[in-house]
Computed example of a mutant assay.
Amino acid sequence: MSCIGILGGMGPAATVDFLGKLVALTPARCDQEHLPVVVSHLPQVPDRSRAILGQGPDPLPALLRGIALLNAAGAGLIAIPCNSSHHWYEAMAAASGAPILHIARTCVQALPAGGSACVLATRGALASGFYQRALAERQITADVPDPEAEQPWVDDCIRAVKAGDMAASGRALDEVLRRARQRGAATVIMGCTEIPLAMLYAHADGLALVDSSLELARACVQHGLAQGWNRGAAGSATPLPRAA
Score class of each variant (00 low, 15 high):
117 A>T: 09
153 W>Q: 11
132 Q>S: 04
94 A>D: 14
77 L>A: 12
154 V>Q: 04
136 A>N: 11
52 I>L: 00
47 D>G: 01
138 R>K: 15
150 E>Y: 01
113 A>H: 10
51 A>N: 07
117 A>S: 13
55 Q>D: 13
117 A>G: 13
101 L>N: 03
72 A>S: 06
143 D>A: 05
135 L>K: 09
164 G>K: 03
144 V>E: 10
68 A>W: 02
36 P>E: 01
134 A>L: 09
65 R>I: 04
38 V>R: 14
69 L>Q: 14
61 P>C: 05
68 A>P: 06
62 A>Q: 11
44 Q>E: 15
119 V>S: 04
57 P>E: 15
131 Y>R: 00
44 Q>Y: 12
105 R>M: 01
81 P>R: 13
72 A>F: 06
70 L>W: 01
83 N>V: 11
144 V>N: 03
137 E>A: 15
131 Y>K: 02
63 L>K: 07
32 Q>E: 13
42 L>F: 07
106 T>A: 14
132 Q>G: 07
34 H>N: 04
133 R>H: 09
165 D>I: 02
42 L>Q: 15
93 A>G: 04
37 V>L: 11
40 S>A: 15
42 L>V: 07
170 G>M: 11
148 E>Q: 09
166 M>A: 12
95 A>L: 09
136 A>C: 09
84 S>R: 00
66 G>F: 01
48 R>T: 00
170 G>E: 02
149 A>Q: 15
164 G>Q: 05
95 A>G: 10
76 G>A: 08
132 Q>P: 00
84 S>W: 04
83 N>A: 10
84 S>A: 15
74 G>I: 09
151 Q>T: 06
169 S>Y: 07
96 S>V: 13
102 H>M: 03
126 L>P: 13
72 A>K: 10
69 L>I: 12
103 I>H: 08
81 P>F: 11
86 H>E: 09
98 A>R: 06
55 Q>W: 05
74 G>M: 08
67 I>A: 00
149 A>R: 15
153 W>I: 01
111 L>K: 04
95 A>P: 13
91 A>N: 03
121 A>R: 03
74 G>R: 07
146 D>W: 06
125 A>S: 15
32 Q>T: 13
53 L>I: 13
129 G>M: 05
156 D>M: 08
48 R>C: 04
144 V>A: 07
166 M>I: 10
117 A>V: 09
94 A>K: 14
154 V>D: 00
88 W>D: 15
120 L>T: 02
169 S>G: 15
148 E>L: 11
158 I>P: 02
55 Q>L: 15
66 G>T: 01
36 P>T: 05
78 I>A: 00
49 S>D: 03
143 D>S: 04
82 C>V: 10
89 Y>S: 08
170 G>N: 12
32 Q>D: 12
154 V>H: 05
59 P>Y: 09
123 R>K: 12
